[in-house]
């Protein structure tokens, strides 16, 4: 007897509810038409009122200060200020895209689809995580810019003095602590001198590694885990869907803050300034 092996999809489409259906023409086509018209007219109006920017012709000898990537990459450029370049520019975004792509394979329950905030605590989780992402990201940016310590001193007259100067920003942990001489070149035993994929392993600069890789990794992994843990202890996060709600909402808030701060709050030399203090100078570095 022959048996046929039929590949079955993980989940089948739901049967249709014919009596609940409306005709695409006119009900949907009409809405699509209106939406398209509204966008066409708005964009025509915008294009009539505001011209696309065109600066001077490209010149490799004249570096504008600050030089910025297109706005949707400024979140990465902002991250770049706080950690190792490869991490900020490539590893973090790639890992996040993979995590996001894997969402449906982590949360496989088909309960609660097709409706906004269908599960019990979803609104609370979303709002709480968005607030944490927003406040947390701004807090970290301000702290690491060194402006946090400066403002605390200016407004409240509190200063940690030179003993606590290493807490002023991430970089000061490397610069202000009395790291022993040997800690900046710890040999990579036992594979010292080994070359892996074009990179030769010789010595580890521990303070730099701590500041550029270890702490940022701890923050990027630890904070979301902590958020989910706290919401779980509170009894809000119960299902895998809830975990994703916290993760995604925190991400959207953090992503928004990073984009905004990279776009509107980074002035010359990528210093943290208010948007109204933003200036761009076009000049040859060192001769301005």
């Amino acid at each position: 007897m022959a048996t046929a092996v039929v590949a079955r999809p993980v989940a089948r489409p739901q049967p249709r509810a014919r009596d609940e259906e409306v005709l695409v023409w006119p009900d949907l086509v009409f809405i699509e038409f209106i939406a398209a018209m509204v966008f066409t007219l708005t964009l025509f109006l915008l294009s009539y009122l505001v011209n696309a920017p065109l600066l001077d012709q490209a010149n490799a000898d004249v570096t504008p200060n600050p030089s910025k990537a297109p706005w949707y990459l400024l979140n990465l450029q902002e991250l770049l200020l706080h950690m190792n370049a490869a991490m900020a520019g490539v590893i973090v975004p790639t890992v996040w895209l993979v995590i996001m792509g894997a969402f449906p394979y982590f949360d496989r329950d088909n309960e609660g689809q097709g409706q906004y905030f269908a599960t019990e605590n979803s609104v609370r989780i979303t709002i709480a995580s968005a607030i944490v992402g927003f406040v947390g990201t701004w807090g970290l940016i301000i702290w690491d810019s060194g402006k946090g310590a400066y403002l605390v001193n200016k407004w409240f007259g509190i200063s940690g003095g030179s003993n606590l100067a290493f807490l002023e920003s991430e970089r000061s942990i490397q610069q202000q602590l009395p790291w022993p001489e040997w800690s900046t070149h710890i040999p990579y035993l036992p594979f010292r001198g080994v070359t892996i994929l074009g990179q030769q392993f010789l010595n580890l600069n521990f303070p730099a590694w701590l500041v550029e890789q270890a702490i940022p990794t701890a923050v990027l992994v630890g904070f979301p885990c902590m958020l989910i843990y706290v919401l779980w202890r509170k009894g809000w996060v119960v299902t895998r869907r809830d975990v994703l709600l916290a993760l995604f909402s925190g991400f959207v808030a953090a992503y928004g803050v990073l984009t905004l701060s990279g776009t509107a709050f980074r002035g010359q030399g990528q210093e943290l300034v208010f948007p109204w203090e933003l200036k761009v100078s076009e000049g040859i570095p060192g001769q301005e």
Binding site: P53, L54, L55, D56, Q57, A58, N59, A60, V62, T63, P64, S67, K68, A69, P70, L73, L76, Q77, L80, A85, A86, A88, G89, V90, I91, L197, G198, Q199, E282
Partner: peptide
């Protein structure tokens, strides 16, 4: 557009891509 905005944005952007390990 090959203006200053374009040139330097792409310089910064491709530097970001260039920092990837390996």
């Amino acid at each position: 557009p090959w203006d200053q905005l374009a040139f330097w944005a792409i310089t910064v952007g491709t530097n970001i891509a260039g920092s990837a390990p390996v």
